[in-house]
Computed example of a mutant assay.
Amino acid sequence: MKERRPVSARSPAQALFRRLIVINGLVFTVGTLVLAVSPATVSAPVLLTEIPVLTIGLALMLSANAVLLRRSLAPLVALTALMQRVDLLRSRDRLAESGNGDLTDVVATFNAMLDRLEAERSTAAAHALAAQEGERQRIARELHDEIGQSLTVVLLGLKRAVDLAPEELREELHNIQETVRGSLDEVRQVARRLRPGMLEDLGLIASLNALAADFGEMSDAHVTRRLESHLPELGEEAELVVYRIAQEGLTNVARHARATKVELSLCRQPDGVVLKIADNGRGGPMTEGTGVRGMRERALLIGARLTITSPPGGGTTVRLAIPVRPERN
């Protein structure tokens, strides 16, 4: 656990005010001492030959004051830049708290605020995603148990109708029967995508293989799979995150990439277990919609690092690095 810094008796505003007074006082004191011990004198009224000496002295004092103030206030520039770029879905973007003088308390307070906001967002996202998974499972059960069974009953009725119908109606009834059978298959596929029962029954690798097979059926792109079977234990939550991000990544390829080749890989690398979805599509600048932000929220839940690169004309690569605990001997 990170040690909390003791709260300063002075407020940051008071500390900054004191520092400015000290800097300015120091500069003017040094200037006065230099003027007192130097052979330079100032007449009354001021002579023209003394004006350059006064000008140079004033310039030196202002320059010294500017340099000291600039160094003292430098953390404010970095803090402003962090405020402008901070994104709670890209965590651990912090300022160093050492060497910032009286502004250290301001930096430490801002870093603590980011820690608190990230923790609160992570908790809220976990509840929202859990509710989403529960709703998906409910819809999947209703599709499978109610609509699926109803369509099965219709198929049985149509089969009986085909057997009893006159010859001139059989072909038309047979076409209707095939349409209903196709609808039943689609309902089952939707239910399977909503609730990855295979993930619980057969594991992550089998589920990713099935996901790639489904993608290959509904897309013209050729899918290359590189899925290592012997991987460290990730846990149920992390496996579900990997599956959902792979699902969303392949869906985005089918919708937007115009790709002919897709690589789906899950393997062990130095920075953990890495999931990668890479295509040879059009690439280019991306607008992060709800799908991509959902992927980032899921990655944040398990402490994983999600990166998406999409150079123009170079395809898109989604990379999820899941940290794993060192294996015990």
Score class of each variant (00 low, 15 high):
V180M: 06
L155S: 05
L82E: 03
E133M: 14
F110K: 04
E178A: 10
G157T: 06
G134V: 08
E167C: 09
Q137P: 04
Q149G: 09
V86F: 14
E120T: 02
A81C: 13
L194M: 08
L173D: 00
R181L: 14
L194S: 04
T80V: 11
D102L: 05
V162W: 02
L184K: 14
H127R: 15
S150P: 01
R85I: 05
G101T: 00
A125W: 03
A165D: 03
S150H: 12
A81Y: 12
V86R: 07
M83N: 09
I139H: 12
L156T: 11
A128E: 11
A128C: 07
R141E: 09
V154G: 06
N100Q: 08
A125D: 14
P166A: 09
V187W: 01
A119P: 02
Q84K: 12
A119C: 06
L151W: 02
D105P: 01
D93S: 11
T109Q: 13
D102Y: 01
R170T: 02
N175V: 10
L88A: 14
Q137H: 12
V107P: 00
R85C: 05
A131C: 08
L82Q: 03
E172M: 12
G182W: 04
E133D: 15
A131G: 13
R92C: 12
R138V: 09
N175T: 11
L173V: 04
G99V: 01
T123G: 14
E120K: 04
L158C: 09
E97S: 03
G157M: 07
L117R: 11
E167R: 10
T80F: 14
D163A: 13
Q84M: 15
A131E: 14
T179D: 13
G134T: 08
Q177G: 03
T179W: 13
T179L: 14
E167M: 12
S122E: 13
M113Q: 15
D185W: 15
L89I: 08
A140M: 03
S91K: 08
Q84F: 14
L173N: 01
L129Q: 05
A81H: 10
E167T: 09
G148W: 05
G134L: 10
S91Q: 08
L151C: 04
I176W: 08
